[in-house]
Amino acid sequence: MRDAAPIHAMHPAYEGTRDRVEHYFDRTATQVWERLTSDAPVSRIRATVREGRDRMRGLMLDTLPADLRGARVLDAGCGAGQATAELAARGAEVVAVDISPSLVAIAERRLPEGLRGRVAFSAGDMLSPALGSFDHVIAMDSLIYYSRADIRAAIEGLAARTVGGVVFTVPPRTGLLMAMWYAGKAFPRADRSPVMVPQHTGRLARALGGAGRVRDLGRVNCGFYISHALEVVA
């Protein structure tokens, strides 16, 4: 584990994007996200997103030990807390952070009573050095709105404070996602959600080489959900 990267290492655009993400999830999409991450009926399109997210979460959690007793784990961008609950059930001391206070409240409410002593919830920046050091970090779909430069700075900062691996996802640069990206940019910013930034995963992996060993964990492609997982071990 190396010294943490300074907070000013983030690209200036990071804070602006982070604030848009907070506004979207905390004020616009909270009810939609709460329903999507539950067992409630959803549209066919959203059902594919739900299934894809379930598969990706399983893939990411499979990279961590089944027994996490004694380990401190950061769930960076915990959302409604599905991964948080699984990590705590494995015995981890979990720090669950999300930029949206509303989603953090949902995650806290849903956490089984018997696991509450193992989780510290926090609303704020998942990259804050004040959160401390960790044995493992997972960041599922929480860096999908950022540029390659911002992702690199984020992962380097997290890896510097992590003994084991930092497992995270990005939207891969595919024809479908690029079409959606260009279509999304045609709408006024106030009328749409933050736009995902598709990444060339090979180039991103090479850019992250200085942070540690990079492992390609694979891709989940399920209807309207597509995401690619990578792991960096400092």
Results as ranks from 00 to 15, higher is better:
I106S: 02
Y14R: 08
A66W: 12
R57C: 11
F121W: 04
G117L: 06
M178P: 07
K185T: 10
L61S: 07
T48N: 09
A83V: 10
E86P: 06
T174P: 04
G212H: 08
Y225T: 03
Y225S: 05
Q199F: 01
S38Q: 09
M126Y: 03
R90V: 10
F187V: 13
G16R: 14
R72G: 01
R116Q: 13
A159S: 11
L115F: 03
T17P: 02
G81M: 04
S102P: 10
G209A: 12
H228K: 01
W33C: 10
R53W: 08
V104G: 00
A234G: 15
I7L: 15
I144G: 00
S38G: 13
P171A: 13
L36Y: 05
L143S: 03
A229G: 08
R213F: 10
M180D: 12
V170S: 00
L59H: 04
P198A: 03
R44N: 12
L61M: 11
T174I: 07
G52S: 07
V197C: 10
V42W: 01
A76R: 00
A71S: 15
C78E: 01
V42M: 05
D98P: 02
G124H: 04
T169K: 01
D75C: 09
H136P: 07
A179R: 14
Q82P: 08
L176K: 15
A5M: 12
R161Y: 04
R173I: 01
G124P: 05
H8G: 11
V220I: 12
S102H: 12
P198C: 03
P194T: 07
L208D: 01
R203L: 13
L68M: 12
R72T: 11
H23F: 13
A107I: 04
V214F: 06
C222D: 14
P194C: 02
P194K: 05
V94L: 06
A123G: 06
P188C: 04
T48Y: 02
A71D: 13
D98K: 03
L103H: 03
T28R: 15
P172M: 03
R189L: 11
V163D: 10
P129A: 07
I151K: 00
T174E: 04
G117T: 06
I99L: 13
A47I: 01
L176R: 15
V220G: 01
G223W: 00
R20G: 09
V166M: 02
L115S: 07
S193G: 14
R109E: 14
I144N: 02
G16V: 12
R173T: 05
G77R: 02
G77Q: 05
A92K: 00
P112N: 09
H23V: 12
A85E: 05
A4D: 08
R161D: 02
A186L: 15
G223Q: 07
T169C: 10
I155Y: 00
V195K: 03
S227V: 02
W33T: 14
S147T: 13
I155R: 00
V163P: 02
C222S: 14
A153S: 11
H136K: 07
D98T: 03
S142F: 07
A76M: 09
S102L: 09
P194Q: 06
D150A: 15
R44P: 09
V214T: 08
D19K: 14
I106H: 02
T28M: 13
L127E: 00
P112R: 07
G114V: 11
L64N: 02
